[in-house]
Amino acid sequence: MRLAQGIVIDKDKTFGQLKFSALRREVFLQNEDGTVSTEVKERTYDLKSREQGRMIQVSIPATIPLREFDYNAEVDIINPIANTVANATFRGADVDWYIKADDIVLKGKPSPTMNNAPKALSDKDK
């Protein structure tokens, strides 16, 4: 079974309170010759999840500026999706889960990236 759009998550029930830890890694694009470029594709952050009882990793696109919040600052993830990657093995397959989101923001503050969304026209603007 393949879930092309991933699994939509009820983030409050799945993760509970999230606290920022650190940038874990940056993933870089590859050049045509297969070498690694200097252009960042996505960034993965470590977040502490109260509901999971452990650290989770959440990746966001590189189009979002680098997130540098205080350690243990309460954060929110925007539009999280879970998905899997399976690799065939001699005994079957190894499956790894990953979480992607549109953004990571401080809890209670609007996402600066969402402020760029087009606004609906009012009747007097039409």
Results as ranks from 00 to 15, higher is better:
113 T>C: 08
25 R>W: 06
74 E>V: 10
35 T>S: 08
69 F>A: 00
35 T>G: 02
32 E>D: 14
49 S>E: 03
80 P>L: 11
118 P>R: 01
31 N>I: 06
50 R>I: 12
43 R>I: 10
90 F>P: 08
67 R>D: 07
56 I>K: 00
43 R>A: 10
36 V>H: 08
48 K>R: 13
118 P>A: 03
89 T>Y: 07
31 N>H: 07
64 I>T: 12
85 V>P: 00
5 Q>T: 12
49 S>N: 04
18 L>E: 03
85 V>H: 12
68 E>R: 09
19 K>H: 11
103 D>W: 03
61 P>E: 05
113 T>K: 08
83 N>Q: 14
92 G>P: 02
16 G>L: 01
124 K>Q: 15
101 A>P: 07
46 D>V: 02
52 Q>G: 05
26 E>Y: 07
74 E>Q: 09
119 K>E: 09
70 D>I: 01
17 Q>C: 13
24 R>Q: 13
115 N>Y: 11
125 D>R: 11
91 R>Y: 15
7 I>D: 01
16 G>Q: 04
115 N>H: 13
82 A>M: 08
41 K>N: 14
32 E>K: 12
70 D>V: 02
27 V>W: 02
95 V>R: 06
62 A>L: 06
10 D>F: 02
109 K>E: 14
28 F>I: 01
107 K>S: 12
33 D>P: 03
93 A>Q: 07
27 V>D: 07
61 P>G: 10
22 A>R: 13
49 S>F: 03
113 T>H: 03
30 Q>L: 12
72 N>R: 12
96 D>F: 15
106 L>T: 13
45 Y>K: 02
